[in-house]
Design a protein around this nucleic acid. Structure first.
Lengths: 338, 338
DNA sequence: CTGAAAGCGCTTACAG
DNA sequence: CTGAAAGCGCTTACAG
C-alpha cells in the first residue's frame, strides 16, 4: 500500500547532515535554540533531499493545524466570492490556510459542517451562513473560535463582522428622499436573516420618521431569480414604487433587469434602484449601480485579525466589529438637486 | 499552552466503553472487523463524550490526508468561482475536502504553492493557473497527482480537463459566417495561454478556410478592464469589426459594455458579440449573451473522478479529458436566416 | 472478533 | 547549543 516514492523525513535529513533528528526539527522552528552553523548545515541537507516538513505530524505534536475552516453558502454571489478571494489572498504568505466547506442548507444539523471538527481546524469563519447553535457549541467545547461575516448570531461565543447596516440604510433613505422619490420599496434577502432585518428596519423606520407612510417589502432570498420575482411583484402592485432599495448588489442587478426590460421603465427617470455591497461589477456600465459599499478587503482583514487574536489567546471574548462603508453614487438612482 | 478544554481521544472513548483503544479505532473504520455489538457500544460512548476522530493523527498513520489542494488565480471571474463552487459541492458529502490556495502570479517559483507540499495533500487541482514545471515535478516526486482545469501543459504527469476549444471556435465561426458577418475580431485572454491560443487558432483558421482574409486580434488578459481596452482598440481601427468572439464570458461583458455605451453601437444589428463559458450571468437580460457552454459541473466531476482514480492507483498515467458543450444562442449575436 | 504493541513524523521538556 | 526520549492520536500487522 505504501507509495513507491516516499517523502524524506527529519530523520533522513538528520542522517545526511550528520546531526540528530531534534536538531533538524529546531532548524525548521523559528526562534528555536540552534546555532547558525547547525541551521545552515541542516537546511543544506534538507534542500538536497527536497525535504518539506510534514504539517500533519507537526499539528499532531502541537495541536495546531494552521488550518482555518471556511464555510460559504454560495460562491455564485460575487460579493462572497470576493470575500473568499480576499481572505485567501491575505492569508497567502501566512502559515495558515483555508479549508473550504460549502454549507448548502442552513438547517441545524449539517453533517458536512460536523466534519469540520475532525480536521482540527484552528478557527472557523462562516460567511453567508447561519451558524447553527449546535455547531457553535461544539466548536466552543473544542476551543475553536468562530467568526461570522455578515450575519448576526445570538450565540455568545461567536464573533461577528458586518457592514454599516443601519447607517447605510438611513443614508440611502435620505438620498432617495432628497431625490424627490415618493413611493419606496425594499427587496430583502432571506426573510429571517438578521442582517436583512436590520437593513429593512433601519430603512423603513427612517423613512417613517421623515413622513413616509408605508414601504412595500418583498424578499428575493439573495438569489438572482428570487430578486427578479420579488421585483415583478412590487412593480405589479397598484402603487408602483419609484425607488427600490435592494439588500445586495447581486439582487439589484436582477431588479434592474426586470425594471428595464420587462417593465420598460427608464432608470433613474421613472424609478431608482440602489444596492448594497459595491461588488466589482456594480460599476459595469450595464448596471452602473448606486450602492453602499461594504469593503470585502476590510471585512477579510478584520476576520483574520480576530482569528489570529483568538488563536493567540483562546480565552478572549467574542468581538463584534462594524466595518465602515460609504454611499457610492452612480447612475441607477436619481441624484438630489444641488 | 495546553487548551483548557481538551478534545476526547480514542483512549477516552475506550475507557468509557470498557474496551481497547484499537477497538475504538476499528469501530470508526468502515469495513474493519468489529462485531456489531462492539461497534454499538463504542459509538454510544463516543457520542456521549462528543468524540470526533482526529484526522491529523489518522493521516499521519495512513499517509492520506483527505485534503485536496486547490489553486485558483481569481475568484472574481464568475466562471472560476462557479467551478470552485461545484468542486466543493460535489465533494461535500465525501471524505475529501479542499484546501484553498490563491496563486496570484504565474511565475516559476511561488512560495505559497510550495507550501502546498507541506500539507500532505492527496492531490492538487489547478484552475486558471499555470503549473510551473518545478511544482509539478515536486508533486510527482511526492506521489501527488496534479489535475489542471482549463489550461494546457506540456508536463507529462499532469492531467488536464478542458472544454471543446476547437469545436466551439469552429461552431462560432460558422454561426457568425451564416449570420452574414464580414469583419471578424477575437478578444483573447493572456497572450501566452495555450487554451486561448487553441481557440484563437481554431477560429481564425476556420474562417480563413471559408475565405475570410484576416481576423483582428487583441488581448484582454481575462480581466474586465483588459477586455474593455482590447475592445476599444478593435473598434477604433479603420476596419471596424462587425463580429467579436471573446475567449470568456467575463470579457464579453466588458466588450458589450464598450460596444453599446462607449461606441453607441446596437447589438446585434451593428455588431455581434459571442462569449465562452456560459456563466450564470450570461443569461441576464442586461447581457443576453450568445456563448458556447463549458459546463462547470461536468468539469468539476471530471476533475474529481481523475483525482479519485489517481489516489486509488498512484501509478496511473495522466489523462486528458475534453468536456462537451454547446452553442447557447441568445440575443447578442445576429442569427442566421432560416 | 479483540487486544497489546509498534510506528507514522513531528515537538519539546530534560540532561548534558 | 545539542541529543536521547517521550508523547501527540491514530492505524495496522501480529497473536490469541
Amino acid at each position: 500500500m505504501k507509495q513507491g516514492i516516499s517523502t524524506p523525513t527529519e530523520a533522513d535529513v538528520a542522517k545526511r547532515a550528520g546531526v540528530s533528528q531534534s536538531a533538524v526539527s529546531r532548524a525548521f522552528t523559528p526562534g528555536a535554540s540552534v546555532s547558525d552553523r547547525m541551521r545552515r548545515k541542516v537546511l543544506k541537507a534538507a534542500d538536497e533531499l527536497g525535504y518539506h516538513p510534514n504539517l500533519m505530524a507537526r499539528s499532531l505534536a502541537t495541536s495546531q493545524s494552521n488550518i482555518i475552516g471556511l464555510a460559504v453558502s454560495s460562491l455564485d454571489n460575487p460579493f462572497y466570492a470576493h470575500v473568499v478571494q480576499e481572505l485567501s489572498e491575505q492569508l497567502r504568505l501566512t502559515e495558515r490556510h483555508l479549508l473550504l466547506f460549502t454549507a448548502k442548507s442552513e438547517t441545524e444539523i449539517d453533517p458536512a459542517l460536523e466534519r469540520v471538527l475532525s480536521f482540527q481546524i484552528d478557527a472557523l469563519i462562516l460567511t453567508a451562513t447561519i451558524a447553527s447553535r449546535a455547531l457553535a457549541e461544539q466548536c466552543h467545547r473544542a476551543g475553536i473560535p468562530v467568526v461570522q461575516i455578515n450575519r448576526e448570531t445570538k450565540l455568545p461565543r461567536v464573533s461577528t463582522i458586518r457592514g454599516e447596516n443601519v447607517r447605510a440604510s438611513q443614508r440611502i433613505a435620505d438620498f432617495l428622499l432628497a431625490g424627490g422619490h415618493k413611493r419606496f420599496a425594499y427587496v430583502g434577502g432571506t426573510e429571517g436573516s438578521s442582517v436583512g432585518r436590520e437593513r429593512r428596519d433601519a430603512f423603513t423606520k427612517h423613512l417613517r420618521k421623515r413622513g413616509v407612510k408605508s414601504v412595500s417589502v418583498a424578499y428575493g432570498d439573495y438569489t438572482f431569480e428570487g430578486a427578479a420575482a420579488a421585483t415583478r411583484q412590487l412593480l405589479g402592485a397598484a402603487e408602483r414604487p419609484d425607488a427600490i432599495f435592494c439588500a445586495s448588489d447581486y439582487m439589484a442587478f436582477a431588479t434592474l433587469d426586470v425594471v428595464k426590460r420587462e417593465f420598460g421603465l427608464s432608470v433613474p427617470e421613472d424609478i431608482s434602484v440602489i444596492g448594497f455591497d459595491d461588488v466589482p461589477q456594480a460599476g459595469n456600465p450595464a448596471y452602473d449601480l448606486t450602492t453602499y459599499s461594504q469593503p470585502a478587503s476590510s471585512l477579510a482583514a478584520a476576520a483574520i485579525e480576530i482569528v489570529n487574536k483568538s488563536i493567540a489567546n483562546p480565552r478572549s471574548r467574542a468581538r463584534h466589529v462594524e466595518i465602515p462603508g460609504e454611499l457610492i453614487i452612480r447612475g441607477s438612482a436619481r441624484r438630489p438637486p444641488l
